[in-house]
Amino acid sequence: MRVFPVYAPKLIVKHARIFLTGVIWVKDLGRLEFEKGRFLLPRKSLPKVKQAILELNELIEAQN
């Protein structure tokens, strides 16, 4: 598990694309899981977490 002390979308996306499957922890967002290079949306999450995951997945799609 990698810990990101700040929310840096480009760096987080780079990590997810390299490792494809895993878990990261982002300060103020908490634990985020990714599989096959995409972030998974938890069943229950705060609106800011949901927005961050959608933003990260959009960045991943834009890079493909």
Rank of each mutant, 00 (worst) to 15 (best):
M1T: 15
M1P: 15
M1R: 10
M1L: 06
R2Q: 15
R2K: 15
V3K: 14
F4L: 02
F4N: 01
F4G: 00
F4A: 00
P5T: 09
V6W: 14
V6E: 08
V6A: 05
V6P: 01
V6G: 04
Y7S: 01
A8F: 11
A8P: 01
A8S: 10
A8I: 13
A8V: 11
P9G: 04
P9Q: 04
K10L: 13
K10Y: 14
L11G: 06
L11V: 07
L11P: 08
L11H: 07
L11K: 07
I12Q: 01
I12D: 01
I12V: 04
I12E: 01
I12C: 02
V13R: 02
V13E: 04
V13W: 03
K14E: 14
K14R: 13
A16Q: 02
A16C: 09
A16G: 02
A16N: 00
R17G: 09
R17T: 11
R17D: 05
I18L: 11
I18V: 13
F19Y: 11
F19E: 15
F19R: 07
L20G: 11
L20W: 08
L20I: 13
T21C: 12
G22D: 02
G22L: 03
V23W: 09
V23S: 07
I24C: 06
I24E: 00
W25M: 09
W25Q: 06
W25A: 04
V26Y: 01
K27D: 15
K27A: 14
K27P: 14
K27E: 15
D28V: 05
D28F: 13
D28T: 14
D28W: 14
L29G: 00
L29E: 00
G30C: 03
G30V: 01
G30Q: 02
G30L: 02
G30A: 04
G30P: 00
G30I: 01
R31C: 13
R31T: 05
L32A: 01
L32I: 13
L32V: 06
E33Q: 15
E33G: 10
E33P: 08
F34S: 00
E35P: 01
K36E: 13
R38P: 01
R38E: 06
F39Q: 02
F39W: 01
F39T: 02
F39I: 03
F39M: 03
L40I: 09
L41V: 08
L41E: 06
P42K: 13
P42H: 11
R43G: 06
R43T: 06
R43E: 06
R43W: 04
R43L: 08
K44Q: 08
K44M: 07
K44F: 08
K44Y: 11
K44G: 07
S45C: 10
S45H: 12
L46V: 12
L46K: 15
P47W: 10
P47A: 14
K48D: 06
K48E: 06
K48N: 06
K48F: 07
V49L: 13
V49P: 03
V49F: 06
K50R: 12
K50D: 07
K50I: 06
Q51Y: 10
Q51H: 12
Q51F: 11
Q51N: 12
Q51R: 14
A52H: 05
I53Q: 01
I53R: 00
I53P: 00
I53A: 06
I53D: 00
L54G: 08
L54Q: 06
L54Y: 12
L54I: 12
E55G: 05
L56H: 00
L56M: 08
L56W: 01
L56Y: 00
N57Y: 01
N57R: 03
N57H: 02
E58H: 11
E58R: 13
E58P: 00
E58C: 11
L59I: 09
L59F: 06
I60A: 07
I60L: 12
I60S: 05
I60G: 04
E61D: 12
E61F: 09
E61W: 08
A62V: 11
A62M: 12
N64D: 13
N64G: 10
